[in-house]
Amino acid sequence: MTDTTIASVPASTADTMEEKLDRYREARRAVWLLSRSFSSMLGLAIVVVFMILAVFGPWIAPYPEAALGSVNMEEMLQPPSWQHWFGTDDMGNDVLSRVIIGTRISLQVGLIITLGAALVGVPLGILGGYLGGWVRSIIMALTDLFLSVPSLVLAIAIVAVLGPGIVNTMIALAVVWWPGYVRLIDSKTLAIKEEPYVEAARALGASTPRIIFRYLLPGCASPLIVKASMDMGAAILAAAGLGFIGLGAKAPSPEWGAMLSVARGYLPEWWWFAIFPGMAIYLSVLGFNLLGDGLRDVLDPRTSR
């Protein structure tokens, strides 16, 4: 009866079940490899903590009204205490509350910049690598043009034209971020398109969109995930840098870079005003970098055994 049941299963269904089992085994292997790395798990823990703060920040913060830039001169520049764990700022606002609520802003900025750059760079990289010829020449020439200018300098120039503000900062950084994705995906596509299964699909008459979405894009997923995870930290740092020089978010926004921009005038006597937003930037960048390193070790085929 069992043999009859197995024989009655269509070949396509059996293949699908086998593919699902293979994906399940690969996922278990990836989780196992990631869990063996202390630095990767530390990075994951840091990222999870910041994500929790981003989602539930307004309910976790002890003084949520501090994010609105209220003025309480009686509490101005109070050192860390049981009432204000991170002290207070120049307006008497609780620094801990502003750092917690600012987590949502910083993570949103990093996510939007990374997604925006990927949405531009990934399609261009796949099209250039797969089609080749004059299409690739034009795409790579445009990419090289953007890469010839330091990204932060170009972002500052774009923000100067558009005007200071958090939205213009995200637009500027996304504009200068996409060439890295083009380079990465183009090189990966050039390697994948020569694989036998892609050649077979092309020989069987598969359309270009089907080849791209069925074979090329999934093949580029591993390096894309690694780069995106590491770019999150870099984007947060870059946005904070623009905020620090006055081109990003403006006070009283609790964005970490803007908080540092105001706090630098109060160093070194009122050190807590600057050190805690700075530590938030440092830890978030560290967390995403450690997680990205761990994902690279797991997803890199050269580490497979």
Rank of each mutant, 00 (worst) to 15 (best):
E199R: 14
L173M: 06
V149T: 15
T169E: 02
I192E: 00
A155V: 04
I236R: 00
A160S: 14
V159L: 09
A235V: 02
V182E: 00
R214L: 13
P179L: 11
F146A: 02
I225S: 06
A203F: 15
C220D: 08
G233H: 02
G165M: 04
I212P: 04
G180M: 03
Y197N: 15
G219N: 05
P164T: 13
W178M: 12
A228C: 14
S151F: 06
K193W: 05
M230N: 03
L216F: 07
V226S: 04
G163S: 08
A174R: 00
K227W: 08
S151C: 09
P218S: 09
A235N: 05
I158H: 01
V176L: 06
L147P: 03
V176I: 06
A206Y: 10
L224C: 09
Y181P: 01
E199H: 12
L147H: 06
S207M: 11
A234N: 09
D186N: 13
R183I: 07
I192Y: 01
I225D: 06
S187L: 13
G233I: 02
D144H: 10
A191W: 14
N168Y: 06
L154M: 15
V176C: 04
F146M: 05
D144C: 09
F146R: 01
G163K: 10
L224D: 02
K227F: 08
A172F: 01
A234W: 01
L173H: 01
V175P: 03
P209L: 15
V159S: 07
L184M: 11
T208E: 14
D144Q: 12
A157W: 09
F213D: 11
I158W: 03
G233W: 00
L190V: 08
M230G: 01
P179F: 09
G165H: 05
V198R: 00
E199A: 15
D231Y: 03
S229A: 12
A172M: 04
E195M: 12
K227R: 13
T208N: 14
G165I: 02
A201T: 11
I156W: 02
E199P: 06
G219T: 07
S207D: 12
S222C: 14
V175F: 09
P223F: 05
A157R: 11
K227I: 12
L145H: 14
A155D: 03
Y181D: 04
